[in-house]
Design a binder for these strands. Structure first.
Lengths: 245, 245
DNA sequence: CGGGACCTTGATTATCTTCAATGCTAGTGG
DNA sequence: CCACTAGCATTGAAGATAATCAAGGTCCCG
C-alpha cells in the first residue's frame, strides 16, 4: 500500500514541489521550508481510485495530499452520496472527529498522501518554528472558506450557477498552488464525481455542463477544463469570489 | 449599543451561566473556569434583531455569543439569502477572513455577544493555561462538524429530511449546552429564518413544517419545538447523527 | 382601529430527478 | 485484428420536488 510505483517527486502534478504548493498559504524562505520538510518527511501512501482513507486517517490524525484528488463526504443508506469537500495536492486532511461516523474519505482519482501527524503534534506542542503554526492556521482557514462557499452553492445557487462557482473556486485554488495555469482547470474526475460534489444527479450535471459549453463559458474535454471567459463565468456564478480561497 | 437593558446574567436563556454552556465542550474545574472567565471578561454588546455584527467582529477578531441567535451567511444581489451557520449562546464567532466579502453576520433574534479576542490571542501566544487551548480547539471542531452536516443537508436531503436533521442538531446542541431540555428545542426564529438556513423558500418551509406536524414528529408553537418522537425524527432525517455536534 | 410581521393556502410554473436507452472509447482476450 | 466488455457520456420522456405568484388570515402592538 505504501510507495506504489511513484515515490520520486511528491507534489508533482506535474513537477510541483512542496514549496510551490504551499506558497498558496504562506511565503517560505529556505530555512522555513526546511522545517516544513522535516515535519512532513516520510513515505507517501498510495490510494488507488475509490479507496477509502479512513483507516490511514485514524492512524495518523492528519495527512497531506501529495497527488490526485481526495473526497470527504457521506454515503446514505439508499445510495445517495454527497461530497462535502474536495482535497487537492497541498491540502490537509484531518481526522473527522466529531463530524460523525457517516463521514468518510475516499480517493476520487489515483492519489497519494503523506503523514502530517507530526506537523499536527508539533504545532500543538508549540515546539516548532512559528511558520508551522501559521501554515496550519492558513490551511484551516482556507478549508473553512471552502466550506462556506460549498454551503452557499448548495443552498441557494441553481445547478448552472453552482457549477460555474465551483469551477472558479478550483481555478483559483489550482492557480495559487501552481497546479495549473490561468484559464485552465485540471478536472480529473468524472461527471458523476462532480455531481456528487454539487448535489446534482449525474444526468442533470451532464446537461448543465452542456449548457455552459453552449454559452462559451467552458471548454470541457477529458480531464481538463478551459475557461475562456472568466468575466462571464463569474457573472454566471452570481458571487464575487474575489478575495476567496 | 453596549449593555442595553440586560447585563446581569450573561448566558442565560434562561439562567445559564458560562460554565453550563461551555460544559458542552470540556469539563472545567473551578480554577480553569476562573481562567476562562478572565479571558472572556468585559461588557456585553447588544445586537437587536436584524443588526449586522460585521463591524464588531472586525474590531475584535472573535466574539462569543451570550444570548440569542446569530446567523452567518450571504445575501445575493437578487435578494436570495443563505445562512451558512447558526451561532447560539456559547458559540464562538470568528472574523470571516478569507471567506470573502459576501459573507456577513446578523442577529436573528435580539442577541448579545462578548469580546473573545483575548481568548484568541492568549491561545495563539500559548501563554494561557492548557484548558483554553483545548476549549478553542473543541469549539472549532464543533463548528467544523456543523458545517459538514449543513453541507450534507443542503446537498442531498429533501426538504423534509433537512428540516428533521436540523432540528435534531439543534436539540443535541441545546441539550449539551444546557440551553434546553430533552425533547424540547428552543426555536426563537421565524419560518423565514429557518428557510434561509435550509435553502428553501418560505412557502415550502411552511408546508414542510406542517407535514412534520401531521406526522407527529414535531409540535411547533411560537418559539418552541417539542420532539415527541426522537426515533421517528432520526429516521426521517436519514442520518445517524449519533456521535455528532 | 389600523398596520405590520408572520403564518397559511391555492394555483401555476420551473428546476431537477428518475428511468431507460443509446453511443462512445479504451482496454482485453481470443 | 476483432469482438467483447466496462466505464463514462449523452439523450428523451415522464414524474417529483420545490419555487413563485397572489391572496387571505391571525395576532400583536401602537
Amino acid at each position: 500500500m505504501t510507495n506504489q510505483s511513484f515515490s520520486e517527486t511528491p507534489f508533482d502534478q506535474p513537477g510541483r514541489p512542496l514549496e510551490r504548493v504551499l506558497s498558496a498559504y504562506t511565503n517560505l524562505d529556505s530555512t522555513e521550508l526546511g522545517a516544513v520538510r522535516q515535519v512532513l518527511e516520510g513515505p507517501e501512501t498510495f490510494h488507488p481510485l475509490g479507496a477509502s482513507l479512513d483507516a490511514d486517517l485514524q492512524r495518523t490524525e492528519a495527512r497531506m495530499v501529495t497527488r490526485g484528488w481526495i473526497a470527504r463526504g457521506a454515503v446514505l443508506a439508499d445510495g445517495r452520496r454527497q461530497i462535502v469537500s474536495l482535497y487537492l495536492p497541498g491540502d490537509l486532511l484531518t481526522a473527522t472527529g466529531a463530524a460523525g461516523g457517516d463521514v468518510t474519505d475516499w480517493a476520487l482519482t489515483d492519489a497519494a498522501t503523506l503523514d502530517a501527524g507530526r506537523l499536527w503534534r508539533t504545532v500543538r506542542a508549540a515546539s516548532g518554528p512559528a511558520v508551522l503554526s501559521v501554515l496550519l492556521q492558513r490551511l484551516r482557514e482556507a478549508e473553512r472558506a471552502r466550506f462556506v462557499h460549498q454551503i452557499i452553492r448548495l443552498g441557494r445557487l441553481t445547478a448552472y450557477e453552482r457549477t460555474a462557482h465551483l469551477f472558479l473556486e478550483l481555478h483559483d485554488r489550482q492557480l495559487r498552488a501552481g497546479l495549473s495555469e490561468a484559464g485552465v482547470v485540471q478536472l480529473p474526475i468524472t461527471q458523476d464525481g462532480l455531481a456528487d460534489s454539487l448535489g446534482l444527479s449525474a444526468v442533470h450535471m451532464n446537461r448543465t455542463l452542456q449548457q455552459l459549453r453552449r454559452d462559451q463559458l467552458i471548454v470541457y474535454r477529458g480531464g481538463q477544463l478551459l475557461l475562456p471567459d472568466l468575466r462571464g463565468l463569474r457573472h454566471a456564478a452570481r458571487l464575487g469570489l474575489e478575495a476567496s480561497t
